[in-house]
């Protein structure tokens, strides 16, 4: 309104400045509006996760909670709920341990030594990993685990999950290590450090942000993975939270929302916390990946 009236009354120069101010103001409004919509889009589904667990009688609709902890008491009484979180922790940290150690060794070697066919190898594995960890490899993996006696063991699941996430872990870590100046290692080497010492004293500390990111990324993958433990672990005592959660809302005819809501929250908190701790401390950096 003000802009148009100013444009009418003023001369040419003032009218263009006014129009520009108006346009700037408008884009600003649109921008803020768009951000609100985006924020709302991501927040809406999450609202249930933080309200329902604290409601006396949780329903599927988001409503203001009564701040009761009753639902969490129900949770502790369920025989599988808390052990399943424990199992998830075992699977998650087991996989992190395997993946970060073997992955950083491999990424370092790939980053620093010209091995023929290195890039092809990396992309081939990356491609395979995204396909094979899904439904495709269920049957062979199952047969393999039966044959090696690893069926129904946490170790088997940890190894299978590690095989699946390793290519991506190596890919991200290699990208990170490529960005570390080589002179650090060269100067360590001049003083007589052996490769394993260079790795321990120099590369790992400098690559710590990358290692932390990869560890959390792997945890997120494992924490939510449903298919592999579902197929490879048959007894409910050893199943992780992702599988137990699924049984909670499929097996009983009427979903028990008290249990599900409290469980969802307890199940989500460890990864969210860890993620934000790591993100706060190190942030995330990526240097392009595809170079060759």
């Amino acid at each position: 309104m003000t802009a148009t009236s100013a444009a009418r009354s003023g001369g040419t120069t003032s009218s263009t400045t006014a129009a520009r101010t108006a346009r700037k103001f408008l884009t600003r409004i649109l921008f803020v509006l768009a951000m609100v919509v985006v924020g709302f889009f991501f927040a809406l589904p999450l609202a249930w996760l933080v309200t329902a667990p604290f409601s006396k009688v949780p329903t599927l609709t988001v409503s203001w909670p009564d701040w009761t902890l009753e639902n969490f008491r129900v949770l502790t009484e369920n025989p599988y709920a808390l052990t399943s979180i424990g199992n998830s922790l075992i699977l998650g940290f087991g996989t992190i341990a395997v993946v970060v150690t073997t992955g950083s060794l491999a990424a370092y070697a790939l980053s620093r030594v010209r091995i023929p066919g290195r890039d092809g190898l990396l992309y081939g594995l990356l491609l395979l990993s995204s396909v094979v960890t899904g439904t495709a490899a269920m049957v062979p993996l199952f047969q393999l685990m039966v044959a090696t006696g690893l069926i129904n063991t946490q170790t088997g699941v940890v190894l299978a999950l590690s095989g699946g996430v390793l290519p991506t872990v190596i890919f991200i870590l290699k990208d990170f290590m490529d960005s570390i100046p080589k002179s650090y290692e060269e100067s360590a080497r001049l003083y007589g450090a052996k490769p394993h010492q260079i790795l321990r004293h120099v590369v790992v500390p400098i690559a710590r942000p990358g290692l932390a990111f990869v560890a959390v990324w792997a945890l997120v993958q494992v924490w939510g993975n449903f298919l592999l433990p579902f197929i490879l672990l048959r007894s409910p005592e050893s199943q992780p939270a992702a599988v137990i959660m699924y049984t909670f809302y499929t097996e009983s005819g009427q979903a028990d929302l008290s249990l599900i809501s409290a469980f969802s929250l307890v199940f989500s908190i460890p990864v969210i916390l860890l993620y934000f701790l790591v993100n706060r401390r190190y942030g995330f950096r990526f240097h392009g990946g595809i170079k060759s």
């Binding site: 100046p181 002179s183 650090y184 060269e186 100067s187 360590a188 080497r189 001049l190 003083y191 007589g192 450090a193 004293h201 120099v202 500390p205 400098i206 710590r208």
Partner: peptide, 28 residues
Amino acid sequence: PGERGVAMVFQDYALFPHMDVADNIAYP
């Protein structure tokens, strides 16, 4: 390199960012 008895100062100095000055000097 470690067997030659040489020391080198790099153009970018290559000081380890995660070690303090004393640890850097003491690394060899």
